[in-house]
Design a protein around this nucleic acid. Structure first.
Length: 328
DNA sequence: AATGCACCCAACCGCTCCTCG
DNA sequence: ACGAGGAGCGGTTGGGTGCAT
């Protein structure tokens, strides 16, 4: 595996071999270092009888031949450690490697780039900032789910529920933009962005819970990422709204003082599409990684619930509504 | 069976940092 | 304080491999 020898383009290249190491070369390097130590890497190749540059020898030894190198898959503990350290240190692979005995910086870097980065992106988390992604594309899977649910409901003629979706999918509807905000991040925390209270027809007291109960979106009792936990609190703590119903993660409020009276339904946000093994939770209240804030990730069996979106919601039937396109 | 494609990871490159005279 | 050389680091490359068609 790895690179094949590069064709020599100069006299020096004719002397110094590049590309994949042979087993003979490996053995030569091991024998020399075991007997003499590596000493000066620059002079090692000549002393060891290798037709390589010192840099190449150092790399081969530290990343592959060193006897204390741990091989095989990364454990969940190692993965959590990498995640945690990366959230603090960033791409300081060598520093991260010092905390993972037997793992090299190169190996950790490769693992991050090929596995963990992908996982985080799928979870709607920016791998560089460890914060929820704010770009529209990060919301696309959620939008796709929404649109497919709408289609399903249409198909099943569940008009009663459909009004909620239609409401979301109307042009200039604050509900959808709010939903996007809520699945996105930080601006939500600002006062001016808390205008997500949707104006629904007033519901009779004995109707609300039933109405809400029938609405199928939302998952309760899940550990929500930071950005998904805020807005409902603002309604719940507001003197202007009365909590009148709650079911399956949705809460219904009605205004106390407004005339004409308005009702509001807060939606549990569409959860990010994440791997069962990588549920994210956070205790960060500021959106910053600084000053003691922490982000922890636990495995699927680690206590935190994971989201499971039904496969059928992602079927090809999805046709991106022009309304949604315009909103982008 | 042949081909195409995506993924993985060893190895290279270029830059910065460190040490020493 | 400064410069040169060596070591280390992070980003990138590209060939091997396995899976899908």
């Amino acid at each position: 595996m790895g690179r094949s020898p590069v064709p020599p383009s100069s006299n020096q290249s004719n002397l110094i071999k590049k590309g994949a190491w042979t087993t003979e070369e490996d053995q030569q390097l091991i024998n020399y270092i075991q007997n003499h130590g590596h000493g000066s890497w620059r002079s090692l190749p000549k002393l060891a009888g290798l037709n390589r540059c010192g840099k190449s020898c150092r790399l081969r030894w530290t990343n592959y031949l060193r006897p204390d190198i741990k091989r095989g898959k990364f454990s969940q503990e190692e993965e959590n450690m990498i995640l945690h350290l990366h959230s603090i240190l960033g791409n300081k692979w060598s520093t991260i490697a010092t905390r993972l005995p037997g793992r090299t910086d190169n190996e950790i870097k490769n693992y991050w780039n090929t596995h963990m980065k992908k996982k985080l992106l799928q979870s709607g988390i920016d791998p560089m900032t460890h914060q929820p992604r704010t770009d529209l594309f990060s919301c696309l899977p959620q939008l796709l789910v929404l649109a497919n649910i709408k289609e399903l409901l249409e198909h099943n003629q569940l008009a009663q529920n459909l009004q909620y979706f239609n409401h979301f999918l109307q042009p200039n509807n604050t509900g959808l933009s709010t939903l996007l905000n809520r699945t996105s991040s930080i601006p939500l925390f600002q006062e001016e962005n808390l205008n997500f209270v949707s104006e629904f027809p007033v519901l009779e007291d004995d109707q609300e819970s039933e109405e809400i109960r029938q609405f199928p979106v939302g998952t309760s009792n899940v550990t929500q990422p930071l950005h998904q936990e805020v807005s409902i609190m603002n309604l719940e703590t507001s003197n202007d709204f009365k909590h009148v119903g709650h079911c399956q993660g949705q809460s219904a409020f009605t205004s106390v003082n407004s005339s004409p009276s308005i009702s509001a339904v807060t939606w549990n946000p569409i959860p990010p599409l994440i791997d069962n093994t990588a549920t994210a939770t956070t205790t960060n209240n500021s959106g910053s990684l600084e000053s003691g804030s922490t982000i922890s990730y636990s495995g699927g069996d680690g206590g935190a619930s994971s989201y499971n979106w039904p496969e059928f919601l992602f079927e090809d039937s999805f046709k991106l509504d022009q309304t949604l396109l315009e909103m982008s």
